[in-house]
Design a protein around this nucleic acid. Sequence first.
DNA 1: TAATACTTGACAAGAATAGTCATATATAGT
DNA 2: ACTATATATGACTATTCTTGTCAAGTATTA
Lengths: 135, 135
Amino acid sequence: MLKISTRCRYGLLAMVELGQCYGQAPVSAQEIYKKQRVPKFYLQQLLVKLRRNGLVESIRGTRGGFVLKKDPKTIKILDIVKAVEGPVQLISCTKQSRDKCCSKIKECLTRPVWVELHEVVNRVLSERTLHDLMR
Amino acid sequence: MLKISTRCRYGLLAMVELGQCYGQAPVSAQEIYKKQRVPKFYLQQLLVKLRRNGLVESIRGTRGGFVLKKDPKTIKILDIVKAVEGPVQLISCTKQSRDKCCSKIKECLTRPVWVELHEVVNRVLSERTLHDLMR
DNA sequence: TAATACTTGACAAGAATAGTCATATATAGT
DNA sequence: ACTATATATGACTATTCTTGTCAAGTATTA
Ligand code: FES
Ligand code: FES
């Protein structure tokens, strides 16, 4: 069904929230999950992943929280998705990884559609930035 | 990760195989799984779904098998995907079904990306036909 | 030092995916 | 009529993924 996971959705919600406060004081996880109504501990996990991937910075202690590490204009949606759930790979026989998925990749007649889909999804996600989503 | 399921991949492989023999004698499930190396019983399941969705016709008994019910030029890839695994719905807040996915759909800032992704995927899958994949 | 906030790593329920199988039914060819 | 071939149906299962939860620890500020 190709459903967008909650990881992605929550991750992007959090990033948008941080984007709104870019340049201002850090935003705590609590503020985010109260505002966006996402599960507390789950969100914490996602924020850690975003930090480990260099998208946000964390500040501990009272008045701490998270801040974007870069300008929203330079953060692709794809970066966020990759951070919370790894590469967007619709098939395993892309240019990057040439694993076989069908029995014989050379003559695979179905491959072109999946490749096109793979590319179009990655293109959309890397053309849009976090800034595009903010008002 | 948005990975294409085996259901989709096998389903399309089967349809391409049937497409190659369009207008000729029926192709048995056995011929398909031997040629494409897909799990026998799993494929059977998918073929039944394709039949129930009016994409193929089944002929029972000796020399039986499956045949396409329509011209490959009139079969969209989306039809095949829908047949084997239901509608391609990346988010639940589309025009078709207005379920809420984020807390407050009206002000959802993240929605535009997911909607765009949803639309672009559906567009690609409905622009390409089975015929486009055959040589 | 008390309160706030992030960190780490483990755990777990439930759903989806991927695949198997037994039994029944239908048809062609002999 | 009999047999071999083929699909139909529905149940069943193992594994993986998703979607969380939680406890114990660390860091910082007021
Ligand atoms: S070889 Fe990758 S889709 Fe067929
Ligand atoms: S309301 Fe559907 S993505 Fe936010």
